[in-house]
Measured scan of single mutants.
Amino acid sequence: SDFTIRIGDRTLHLKNVSEEILKILEELLRRGIDFEELRKIVEELIK
């Protein structure tokens, strides 16, 4: 499924993301992860 994360004025667009990855990202966001850290993790996950 497609997913968009907005943190402040920044946006991260994800396409064809599995439910498992979404759950991980949601947990990281709940813990207050930094946007740049989140972006790096996402890039690793979707390689």
Rank of each mutant, 00 (worst) to 15 (best):
S18L: 02
G8E: 03
E20D: 14
E43W: 09
I5M: 02
R30D: 06
I7S: 02
I41T: 13
E20R: 06
I24P: 06
R31M: 10
L22C: 03
I46L: 13
L38Y: 03
I21W: 10
I21Y: 06
E20N: 09
L38V: 07
D9Y: 00
L25N: 00
R10C: 06
L28S: 08
L28G: 03
L45C: 03
N16V: 04
E36I: 06
K40H: 13
E26T: 10
R39P: 07
G8K: 03
D9S: 03
V42P: 00
E43A: 14
G32F: 10
V42G: 05
I41V: 14
T4G: 01
K47G: 12
E27D: 13
G32C: 14
E27R: 05
E43D: 14
R39M: 14
T4A: 04
E37Q: 13
R30P: 04
K47L: 11
R31G: 13
I24W: 08
K40C: 07
E44P: 07
L29A: 05
E26H: 15
K15E: 10
R10E: 15
I21A: 13
D34C: 01
I7C: 07
I41D: 03
I33A: 09
L22S: 10
L12T: 01
N16E: 09
K47P: 13
R6I: 15
F3L: 15
S18Y: 01
L25Y: 01
E26R: 10
D9G: 05
I21L: 11
V17P: 05
F35S: 05
V17F: 03
I21R: 04
F3W: 03
K47M: 14
R30Q: 13
D9L: 02
R6L: 05
L45P: 03
L29N: 04
T4H: 14
K40I: 12
R6T: 15
V42T: 07
G32P: 14
E20V: 08
D34M: 09
R10I: 14
D2W: 00
K23R: 14
I33W: 05
I41W: 10
D34S: 12
E27I: 07
I5R: 00
I21D: 10
D34Q: 15
F35Y: 12
E27V: 09
T4F: 02
E43V: 11
I46R: 08
I46G: 14
R30G: 08
E43H: 14
I5D: 00
K23M: 15
T11L: 05
R31N: 15
I21T: 13
V42S: 13
F35Q: 04
E27A: 10
V42H: 03
L12F: 05
R31A: 12
I24A: 11
D9W: 00
K15R: 06
R30I: 14
V42L: 10
D34V: 10
E19S: 09
L38I: 10
I41Y: 08
E27F: 05
T11V: 15
D2T: 00
I33F: 06
R30L: 14
K40G: 09
L14V: 09
I5V: 09
T11S: 12
H13Y: 07
L28W: 08
D9T: 05
G8S: 02
L28T: 07
R10N: 15
E36Y: 06
L38K: 02
E26K: 13
I7P: 00
D9V: 02
K40M: 14
